[in-house]
Design a protein around this nucleic acid. Structure first.
Lengths: 157, 157
DNA sequence: GAAAATTTGTTTCAGATGAAACTTTATCGC
DNA sequence: GCGATAAAGTTTCATCTGAAACAAATTTTC
């Protein structure tokens, strides 16, 4: 069949995009279920809380720099965490556009309970791979992300 | 600060989920722009066409088995490709529930023009990594996906 | 020091997405 | 063969998502 002759190398190796999309969707759905069912958190909410947990007090921009989350996602995650009383925000004195986020007692307590579960979940997910493979995979994903970011930046410029 | 002491190993290594989500989002957005701007195709539509290109005539279920796409995504991609005259569908004689999909002349021509662009795009994206790293990454993503699928299946059962 | 441009964060809108209900056809158990 | 169960695809609905417009504050430029 002519169609398949045309395909060339495309035929045997599936495009990285597709594998990446599949793996990300699968892992994300799995984790989202756990965070939602056990803690009532969405993945972006947990991502935000994890940053506050690490850095104590942090602005949305700092979260973005550290996680590559989108502005909108951070804003929405923060709004929901505020509404559920997990965090408080205060306008920064240095820059009144900026609001710094920090835990309430309730938020800190929740964070403390999520961390071990999150680690256990990561272990479960990574259990299909060896330690070396996990390290390798993270490294390669980081490299790919960096390269793709460069490409996107160049495309815009 | 007590919050950071709690974090433990979580502190240094970013959770695989997050890296995966970042890389997938970045690559997907990049590719979606190319397919959309240059061919008027969404990623799921291109994924579907790629399967028809490889296998000639194929049912939605076979597409799902081969790509891990969701039923709904396939159904919608097929509806749009039908509407834009890229494919036709015929009820299978063997199973009247099933519809087999195949190219129109227009669809085949488009497919032929997308394949080389898709390969070039893949090369560009993979250019940040060595050949070995690309192979490794694909392998690890496949393994991770398989393991996560098993976990999800076990969670339901 | 005021106008222009930039940055921070929010909101809006339109399209994407996924779970669940649904329709139709096929298969299983008896 | 007939009722129950399952499978193929579609549709609905409620939510998620991202791009772009937006408001407010800051920085830059002249």
């Amino acid at each position: 069949m002519s169609a398949s002759r045309i395909a060339g190398s495309f035929e045997n190796e599936e495009f990285l995009l597709f594998r990446l999309a599949n793996a990300a969707r699968r892992v994300s759905t799995l984790c989202a279920g756990v965070y939602e069912n056990e803690f009532g958190l969405s993945v972006p909410e947990w991502r935000l809380l994890a940053q506050i947990g690490r850095f104590g007090t942090i602005s949305a921009t700092e979260v973005r720099e550290r996680t590559s989350m989108e502005r909108v996602a951070i804003s929405r995650a923060a709004a929901r965490c505020l509404a559920s009383g997990l965090i408080v925000e205060r306008t920064s004195r240095l820059d009144k556009r900026s609001k710094v986020l920090s835990f309430t007692a309730k938020g800190r307590a929740l964070y403390r309970s999520v961390v071990p579960r999150s680690e256990a979940l990561a272990s479960e997910i990574e259990a299909g791979l060896s330690r070396t493979e996990v390290r390798q995979l993270k490294k390669l994903l980081g490299k790919l992300d960096d390269h793709a970011r460069d490409m996107a930046a160049r495309a815009i410029a």
